[in-house]
Structure formats: structure tokens, C-alpha cells
Computed example of a mutant assay.
Amino acid sequence: MSAFMDPAMHFPVKTTATFSVSKPGLKLDQIGLAKKAIAPSKSSTVVPTIASRMETSDTRIHHLIEKEVAVVVPSCFDALSAALLEKTGFKAGCISGYAPSASLLAKPDLGLLMPPEMAERARSVCSAVPFMPIIADAESGGENALNIQRTIKDLIAAGAAGCFLEDQAWPKPSVCTLMIPRLQAGADASLVETPRSLEELIEIGEKTTGYRVCYMVEGGVTPMLTPEELKSYGYHLIVHPLTTLYASAHAMLDVLKALKDEGSTRDHLDRMATFEEFNQLLSLGSWIKLEAWISNLRYGACKS
């Protein structure tokens, strides 16, 4: 299923949206990814499939894959976490379904976050990192064809470079469901979610073609492998959907417990960024210079 066009409407299966970000006419291209659920099984058999790819590959995600072969894609759940991804040198990011549900609603990923809310979160994330391609989790897109079309258009308008689109009934049958990709024309990559062993990971790489996506979830059932290892098994997008969420939650809990128990963070300053470090993360100096430059322009215009 195309992530960016409604197949029921027989629209083109992939689009390129042009937005004015920092340079007029800058193209923010879209990549679609599809996945489908089946019942979980300890002895799951991976179905041989063929990933559909377009004749052209003129998108930022395609270019990254062609350049690096395997791309590590950490998750971000707000504008700040997206900016941190960019500052640490990552080339792409994603917005998983669980992370915004937790950060926005303090609720688990049970379908409580609606597509318009995800699009709004994508808008703030993409605005913070306009030159980093962001892939958003569109879940099922809203179930029916019209809702899927609206979801995809909203994500394109928000600046997303692509999305994961599921084809499955809601609610999800199990959090450990093995995902088998539904590969119609327009899906740029396939995702088999929650393989339970190295053997399954290898088998997926051997029995599918086209671009492959692999989720690396800390504490999950899928073996944690390095990018080089996954590249050797034929994977191209290595998504860490919960890394930043888990790390930030753990760090906040630690320092809040210390504050509650001791009444002060005086002995735990090494756990936090300093005032100066945090301002640097937000590029405060650049914003001050920009404000001064704009003010000088306005002052000069008023004098003339």
C-alpha cells in the first residue's frame, strides 16, 4: 500500500511535495513504507515477498540508502529530541507511534493518539530539523480509504519525508505480533516487525527483496545487532523507535528521585546539562545574532 496516495483512488503511488523551508523550491521528497500483521507464532514462517520500488529513487531517504547502504534512524518525540538527533550527527529520524503517545498523553500506544495529532507532532519535529528527513508512523492511517488519504496529505504538509503505514485490524492482536509486509505498488520498503531470533532476521533478508527495515527495540525480543551486522544481512533502514524515549524517561526519573529524597540536586549536577550547554544545544547565540540583524534592518528602513 502506498504510504502517500490512496490506492482506492488510483492516484500515483508516490509524490514529491515542494515546500519553502530555507531555500525557495527546496524539495522534501516522500518515501512510503508498508507493513501488515499476522497472528504471533513462536515458529513463524517468513513468507517470501518482493518489495516494490519505483523506477525513480529521487528522494532524500533513497539518496541516504544509496550512499550509506544501511542508515541508523533513531526516534524523536518532540522538537528538542529531533534537534538533538541532528546535533549528534544522525542523517535521518523517525517519529514512532509509542513515543508521541507517551510524551503527549502519558499513555501507552493503544490507538489513543489520532492521525491529526500525529501530523501536528510531525509538524513541530520537521520544523525543528527542516534538512533532516523524518519518517512518521501513520499506524493504519485511519482505517478507511478517505482517512488514509487525509492522513498522508497531512503528513506531507507537515514536512514528513515518509511514513510507515500498517495494513491490519485495530486493536492490534498482540504487542509481539510478527509483521509481514503487504507489498503493493508504491511501497518503497518492507518491514517485518519483531523477528525473534538471528535466524529469522537472516531468513527475512534472504527471502525478501528491495529495501528492508529493521526495528531495534531495547528490551524487545529481536536480537540487538550493530548496523554493520544488519547491513550484512541485507537491511537498509535500522530504526530505533524507543531509544530516546527510554533514555530520557530513565534520566528524568533518576534526578527526580534524587530531588525528592535529598531535597536538592546539588550532588547530582553531573547528571544534567549546564545552563551554558543547554543554550548551546538550542543555538541561542545564533538566534540572538539573527534578532540583532533583523532589528538593524528595521532601524535602517525607518531612518530612510
Rank of each mutant, 00 (worst) to 15 (best):
E143D: 14
A145H: 08
A145V: 07
L146E: 11
N147G: 03
N147L: 08
N147I: 04
R150Q: 12
T151P: 01
T151M: 07
T151H: 08
I152N: 01
L155V: 05
I156C: 08
I156P: 01
I156A: 07
A157K: 00
A157T: 15
A158L: 05
A158V: 05
A158T: 09
A160G: 01
A160I: 02
A161K: 05
A161C: 11
A161E: 00
C163Y: 01
E166C: 11
E166T: 01
D167T: 13
Q168D: 12
Q168K: 14
W170M: 15
W170K: 12
P171C: 10
K172L: 13
K172D: 07
K172G: 11
P173S: 13
P173E: 13
V175T: 14
T177Y: 03
T177A: 15
L178P: 08
M179P: 02
I180N: 08
I180V: 13
P181L: 05
P181H: 05
R182G: 11
L183V: 13
G186T: 08
G186F: 05
A187M: 12
A187K: 04
A189M: 06
S190H: 12
L191G: 00
L191Y: 09
V192D: 00
V192G: 01
V192K: 01
E193F: 06
R196N: 08
L198N: 13
E200A: 03
L201M: 14
L201K: 07
I202D: 14
I202C: 13
E203H: 02
E203M: 07
I204P: 06
I204N: 02
I204D: 00
G205K: 00
E206P: 08
E206V: 11
K207W: 00
T208H: 12
G210Q: 06
